Amino acid sequence: MDAVAYSNFRQKLKDYMRQVNDDSDALIVTSKNSEENIVVMGKRDYDAMQETMRVLSNNYLMDKIKQGDQQFAKGTFKTHDLITDENNG
């Protein structure tokens, strides 16, 4: 994760916004007062992080994931053909 001073960030805001979105890497914007430092990230990455947090905090989903991991590790899983909706291609 790169860091940039606030004044430089402000001067090149559009460039940094493009960089954050293109690289999918957050950017630390620093200030003289370290309590005011911020992290800038793309909305797509933020949304993905929020969804991950929702899944991780959902005990039911986490139990299903763990169950699937155990089945895969033991080789006790079944494979199925992909079902396609003929109306949607």
Rank of each mutant, 00 (worst) to 15 (best):
L82G: 03
Q71F: 05
N21G: 13
D23Y: 00
T76V: 06
T79Q: 13
T30H: 03
T79K: 10
Q11M: 05
S34T: 12
Q70A: 15
Q71C: 07
Q67D: 15
A5V: 11
I38T: 12
K78D: 09
D2L: 09
D15L: 00
E35Q: 12
E86L: 08
G42W: 01
E35S: 11
R18L: 00
I65K: 08
S31E: 11
G89F: 13
D81Q: 08
D47E: 15
Q70G: 12
E51H: 04
D81N: 11
D22R: 04
Q50K: 13
M62E: 02
Q50G: 05
T52Q: 11
I28S: 07
V4C: 06
Y60G: 03
L82C: 06
S24M: 12
K64G: 04
I65A: 07
I28M: 11
K14A: 09
N8L: 04
K32Q: 14
R10I: 00
D85C: 09
Q50S: 12
L82R: 13
G68T: 05
N88F: 09
Q19P: 01
Y16W: 02
Q71V: 02
Y46G: 02
D81I: 01
E35A: 11
M17R: 00
M62I: 03
V4T: 09
Y60H: 06
Q19S: 08
E86T: 08
S24H: 13
V40G: 04
Y60T: 09
D2K: 15
M49N: 06
N58M: 04
I83R: 10
K78G: 06
V20G: 03
A48C: 09
M1K: 10
N21A: 05
N37D: 15
F77Y: 13
Q67W: 05
K43C: 14
R54E: 12
E36G: 01
T76K: 13
L61Y: 06
M49K: 14
G42F: 01
G89T: 13
I38F: 12
A5F: 11
F9D: 00
M41Y: 08
D63A: 10
K66E: 15
V39S: 06
I28C: 08
D25W: 03
G42E: 01
I83M: 11
T76E: 14
M41G: 08
Q50A: 14
A5I: 11
E35T: 10
Q71A: 12
D85E: 13
M53R: 15
K43A: 15
R54I: 03
N58S: 12
D2R: 14
F77C: 05
E35G: 07
N88D: 13
N58R: 08
L61T: 03
F9K: 01
T52W: 08
Y16V: 00
K74E: 13
M41T: 12
F72L: 15
I38G: 03
M53L: 15
D22H: 02
D47K: 10
L13V: 00
V39E: 08
N8R: 06
I28E: 12
M41H: 09
Y6D: 04
M53Y: 10
L56P: 01
V39I: 15
D47M: 14
V55T: 03
T84L: 09
K74G: 07
N88L: 14
A48Q: 10
N8D: 14
E51G: 02
T52C: 11
V40K: 03
T30L: 07
Y16M: 00
